Amino acid sequence: MLPEQGFAGVDGCKAGWISWSRDKGGSAPLLRIHTRFRDLVADLGEGAVIAVDMPIGLSDRIMGPGRGPEQAIRPFLGARQSSVFSIPARAAVEARSYGEACARALETSDPPKKVSKQAFNLFPRILEIDAELQRDEGLRTRVLECHPEFSFCRLNNGEPMSKPKKIKGAVNPDGIAERIDVLERWGLDRGLFDTGAPRGASMDDVVDAAVNLLMAERHAAGRTTPFPSRPGRDRHGITIAIHG
C-alpha cells in the first residue's frame, strides 16, 4: 500500500486494470495489474490521486458527437482524434446488450446515434468505476478521467503524437518509442519500459498508464485543466470532464 497522497496512472487492459504508482516522495514507479478497480483503489491507500483512462460521469442525454469532454479535446488531437470514442447517455451504458444499448442511445442523443462496438466494449469498465464513485463520494475528488493521447499532447507542447500506438490492431513499436521519449522528457526513466508488458497487458497499456501517472501528479499540484472548462455533473453528482 502506498503512503497517503500517493499517485497512480491507470488504464484498462485485458487482465483488468494496469497501473503505474509511486508515493509523493518520487520513488521509482511500481507497475501492477488488478482484476478489479475496487482492489486497485484499496491497494493504493487513502488519499491517492488516481488518473484513469476511462470515461467518468454519464450524462442523461447527449447533444452532438459524445459527451462534452470528448467534444472538447478532439480539436487538439489531429490525426489521433479517432482514439476519442463517443460515449452515449447513461441509459445506453447501463443496457444489457448491444442491441439494447443502440436503442437507448438513439432515444437519448441529438442527432440520434447508435453505439460503436468499441465503445460498447468499454461499458463494463465504465460501470465498474461508476459504481465505486456512487458508493464512495470521497473518491470523486481524487479519481479523475484522463485520455492518454490528450495527455501526451499536453506534455508535448500541445502537439499530438505523430505515430499511432497500434496499426491494424498490432502494437506499433515506433509509436510506443515516440511516447516513451515524451515520458523520459518528463522524468520517467526509459529503462522502466525495457521489460515490456506484463502478462494480461500490452505495451500501449503500459505507456498509457505511465502518462496518466504524470497527469495524476500534475493534477495534485494544480497543473491540469478540465475540458470543458466548466464541466457539468451527472445525476449522481459526478463531474464529467477530461483533465489535461
Results as ranks from 00 to 15, higher is better:
residue 1 M to Y: 04
residue 5 Q to T: 07
residue 6 G to S: 08
residue 7 F to W: 02
residue 9 G to D: 04
residue 15 A to L: 10
residue 19 S to N: 05
residue 20 W to K: 00
residue 20 W to S: 01
residue 24 K to Q: 04
residue 24 K to D: 05
residue 25 G to P: 01
residue 26 G to P: 05
residue 27 S to Y: 04
residue 30 L to V: 15
residue 30 L to M: 07
residue 34 H to F: 08
residue 34 H to D: 11
residue 35 T to W: 02
residue 36 R to I: 00
residue 38 R to H: 10
residue 38 R to F: 11
residue 38 R to Y: 09
residue 38 R to V: 15
residue 39 D to W: 03
residue 40 L to I: 10
residue 41 V to E: 03
residue 42 A to E: 14
residue 43 D to G: 12
residue 43 D to H: 08
residue 46 E to T: 13
residue 49 V to M: 13
residue 50 I to G: 02
residue 50 I to M: 01
residue 51 A to E: 00
residue 51 A to C: 03
residue 53 D to M: 03
residue 53 D to S: 04
residue 54 M to W: 01
residue 55 P to M: 03
residue 57 G to V: 09
residue 57 G to A: 09
residue 59 S to F: 07
residue 60 D to R: 10
residue 61 R to K: 10
residue 61 R to C: 12
residue 62 I to E: 03
residue 62 I to Q: 03
residue 62 I to W: 02
residue 62 I to A: 01
residue 66 G to N: 08
residue 66 G to I: 07
residue 68 G to F: 14
residue 72 A to R: 00
residue 77 L to V: 11
residue 77 L to A: 08
residue 82 S to H: 14
residue 84 V to W: 04
residue 88 P to F: 11
residue 89 A to S: 14
residue 91 A to K: 07
residue 91 A to W: 10
residue 97 S to D: 09
residue 101 A to I: 13
residue 101 A to F: 03
residue 104 R to C: 15
residue 106 L to N: 05
residue 106 L to I: 15
residue 108 T to Y: 05
residue 113 K to V: 15
residue 114 K to I: 15
residue 115 V to D: 06
residue 116 S to A: 14
residue 117 K to C: 04
residue 118 Q to M: 09
residue 118 Q to E: 10
residue 119 A to H: 10
residue 120 F to H: 04
residue 129 I to Q: 03
residue 130 D to V: 09
residue 130 D to I: 07
residue 131 A to R: 15
residue 136 D to Y: 13
residue 137 E to K: 13
residue 138 G to L: 06
residue 140 R to S: 09
residue 147 H to R: 06
residue 147 H to N: 10
residue 148 P to G: 05
residue 148 P to Q: 07
residue 149 E to V: 05
residue 152 F to I: 06
residue 155 L to Q: 07
residue 155 L to D: 14
residue 158 G to E: 12
residue 159 E to Q: 07
residue 159 E to A: 14
residue 160 P to A: 09
residue 160 P to T: 08
residue 161 M to G: 10
residue 163 K to I: 12
residue 164 P to C: 06
residue 167 I to S: 01
residue 168 K to H: 09
residue 169 G to E: 01
residue 170 A to D: 12
residue 171 V to H: 01
residue 173 P to H: 02
residue 174 D to I: 04
residue 175 G to F: 07
residue 177 A to C: 04
residue 178 E to Y: 05
residue 179 R to C: 03
residue 186 W to L: 11
residue 187 G to M: 09
residue 187 G to L: 12
residue 190 R to W: 05
residue 190 R to S: 14
residue 191 G to T: 14
residue 191 G to R: 13
residue 192 L to E: 13
residue 193 F to G: 02
residue 194 D to C: 06
residue 195 T to E: 14
residue 198 P to A: 08
residue 199 R to Q: 12
residue 203 M to A: 13
residue 203 M to C: 11
residue 205 D to T: 01
residue 208 D to K: 00
residue 211 V to R: 01
residue 212 N to Q: 15
residue 213 L to T: 05
residue 217 E to R: 09
residue 217 E to K: 05
residue 219 H to M: 14
residue 225 T to S: 10
residue 227 F to C: 06
residue 229 S to T: 15
residue 230 R to L: 10
residue 230 R to T: 15
residue 231 P to W: 02
residue 234 D to G: 03
residue 235 R to H: 11
residue 235 R to A: 06
residue 237 G to R: 02
residue 237 G to D: 15
residue 239 T to Y: 00
residue 239 T to Q: 07
residue 242 I to H: 01
residue 243 H to P: 01
residue 243 H to W: 14
